[in-house]
Design a protein around this nucleic acid. Structure first.
Lengths: 109, 109
DNA sequence: TTAGTTCATCGTAAATATACGATTGAGATG
DNA sequence: CATCTCAATCGTATATTTACGATGAACTAA
């Protein structure tokens, strides 16, 4: 990670896909998304109860998911309600589906 | 990244999904997969021609993709042929599709 | 006002990731 | 055999990630 990344010009799709993938690249974040996307909406408080990790760590993962646009936070004092961002969620589904549709021809391998 | 990750027990699906996502979490790897999954199979040599990065760096990314199971390397001296692993590819597609199908109920948000 | 909750942020330590150039090793070619 | 090419690996520097405890800010409740 020195200089080059900027030399290569990536398409918006490549950048988006990589960013979303990065957000999904830790099992605890998958778990969190599962919990949020599941039954009902959750509060962070419930998450700290469900996941044996320091509250600050969970908050950090939530922040990462929020920055990736995958979830939204709604303040509902004294708690903060987190929900998945359904729009981004759908966009992600489309992006991954399209990307993983590419199916190396039978060709040479 | 101290001790805990091992304290939490993740499902195989969560771990798989995170691992695949991690492999996809860098735009250059998306690019590489695109190239490999696209028209024909490629050789690493062609990749170094197509991507303005040091050969060693590309090799490192290829290794990451290989370890994630997303691509296969075939020795075809004096070159090494890389192709996407169609089985893993299909499995990944299914995993992501299933995961991203979860769609937060209309509920509270 | 004074506590008590709840969550974000700070500071920090350790692990991983990312990039490079240099080197090595395997096989082809002269 | 000597050499060339291609790709992997090594060594290294720097950046980022991940986790924790401690602290801070905002609101509630007594």
């Amino acid at each position: 990670m020195q200089r080059t990344l900027s030399d290569i010009s990536y398409s918006a799709e490549e950048i988006d896909l990589a960013a979303i993938a990065k957000a999904l690249s830790h099992p605890v974040r998958i778990r969190i998304l599962r919990l949020l996307a599941g039954e009902t909406c959750c509060f962070t408080g419930e998450l700290t109860g469900l996941i044996p990790m320091a509250q600050s760590t969970i908050s950090q993962h939530l922040k990462a998911l929020k920055e990736a646009g995958l979830i939204q936070g709604e303040i509902d004092p004294p708690k903060v309600k987190y929900c998945i961002d359904r729009e981004k969620w759908a966009k992600s589904r489309a992006l991954f589906a399209e990307f993983l549709k590419l199916d190396g021809r039978v060709g040479c391998c």
